[in-house]
Design a protein around this nucleic acid. Structure first.
Lengths: 147, 147
DNA sequence: TTTGCTGCAAATAGTTTGCAGAGAC
DNA sequence: GTCTCTGCAAACTATTTGCAGCAAA
């Protein structure tokens, strides 16, 4: 919990430092992004906020995500089906494990990745800045439930 | 070269086996996908074919890619900016290294990935079916060219 | 001859943008 | 009071679909 409070404050502070105003709508969006429970989509965020702010517009969600992304405080997860989901709790690249049935996303611990990055850099002569690693499969729950 | 000829023939055979007709437009698309030089986008494929088939439609490219994808003979690479590129030469998941300046895509050799997959499966209790691993960076050429 | 394929145009989905008024500072 | 932000609607981009004619088998 403390972590999430920190994430909220960190993002708000960064917005302030860069001369952005803190509106109620923006705070609501940051609140959800800071927690990022279940790695929400734009639509998820919009739906959650609409009950508190009936006039909330999808465009506002999009604009704020673009802004926060530009500050490096949210990670965009783009999926093969074209959908995007967001993680403002861990805004740095990290592996994901995605259940293709229930769409649940889990963050595994993997320490072999740094080494792999070096291996790739050496082999290809690239300067590696970023990466993306996703595993797709079926989670324990969905396997148990199968008819 | 022999490999690419094989890929072309494999895809055409698979289409035939599944009761699909072999039209000149379809052959042209498969030819490009089988080689997948530079991991072409839909637009790339369309542009390349249009000189031979002036009436070629983007919809036809899309429809054929969906079809060939459903046969498991082309890999779709979705990128953070929303663009898609395709690899019909190596239609199974494999890592990519992408230059963010010149958009070049390189296929590195990485053997530690299988082990990582097992590690993830054990840790998360998922049955892993698929994965995606991309590294983003700057290639040797673009680094040398930097102003 | 049959059935699937193509080309065109229209439809759709997700995201972005212009503008006028509202609100944070 | 200034200047950014919001909400709305329209614009835009990438992709998909309906339909009529065409062509592979």
């Amino acid at each position: 919990m403390a972590e999430q409070k920190n994430r909220f404050e960190i993002i708000i502070r960064k917005l302030r430092e860069n001369g952005h105003k803190i509106t109620p709508q923006r705070m609501a969006i940051v609140t959800i992004l800071a927690e990022s429970a279940g790695h929400p989509s734009v639509e998820d965020i919009y739906e959650q906020i609409k009950s508190d702010f009936p006039t909330m517009s999808l465009a506002t969600v999009y604009r704020n995500i673009v802004l926060i992304k530009s500050l490096g405080e949210v990670l965009e997860l783009g999926f093969p089906d074209g959908s995007n989901r967001y993680d403002g709790n861990k805004p740095f690249p990290h592996p994901h494990v995605i259940c293709i049935k229930c769409k649940k996303i889990v963050d595994p611990d993997l320490d072999s990745l740094d080494e792999m990055k070096k291996e790739v850099a050496a082999e290809t002569n690239f300067k590696i800045l970023n990466h993306r690693l996703d595993f797709f499969g079926i989670c324990g729950n969905c396997m148990a439930e199968k008819v």
